[in-house]
Amino acid sequence: MAQNTQPRRWNVARLTRLIWLPGLCLVLAACHLDMYQQPKGYPNDPSTFFPDGRLNRPPVPNTVAIGQFQSDPHFLQGTLADGSPATELPPNVKLDDRLLAYGRTRYEAFCMPCHGLVGDGQGIIAQRGPLTVPSLHQERLRTAPVGYFYGVITNGVGRMYGLASRVPPEDRWAIVAYVRALQLSQNASIDDVPPDQRGLIESGR
């Protein structure tokens, strides 16, 4: 028991031999994925927390999202105070070529599949599916107020589903403006063309 009681010496040379140890600890400490998969949720993620398995929460009935309070029925519902369809664009929507150009991009993304490029009801879905899509150029729709189109885009009509969840109100008004432009374009006469540009049309280009 008492043969060798001399304590082991920890001199510097011995310690330097262990210099790899902190390095290895650092390397091993990096072996985890919790930065890669952080405990947070993204839209459309699944969830184990909520019983229905989805992270996106459906709104509680009768709640109104911030910014969607319908304080302006003209802008948000397309109706006048008495509930009838508005006959003018809302005051905060300015009718200019930018609105029409923007409305065209919306129309061609959301409406064209059924209503067709020019609104004649000959979109590709209408051609392939067993359904008749009304032309936007019939008399009933040419004389319909703008608020009527806004309401149809928002809530749908007949077999058409509403687009409220995909197209925000300002975009719906842009579509309405573009639909009006389409209606004009399909019922235009040569007198509507500025005189200096009539030659272009008559020459076929």
């Binding site: 993204y42 839209p43 459309n44 879905i125 599916g129 067993p130 359904l131 077999r159 589903y161 969840s165």
Partner: peptide, 17 residues
């Protein structure tokens, strides 16, 4: 997020075709 379409979006055509 580009977003996955809601089932309603599928059905806007596939309630007919």
């Amino acid at each position: 997020y580009a977003g996955y379409p809601a089932t309603e979006t599928c059905m806007s055509c596939h309630s007919q075709v």
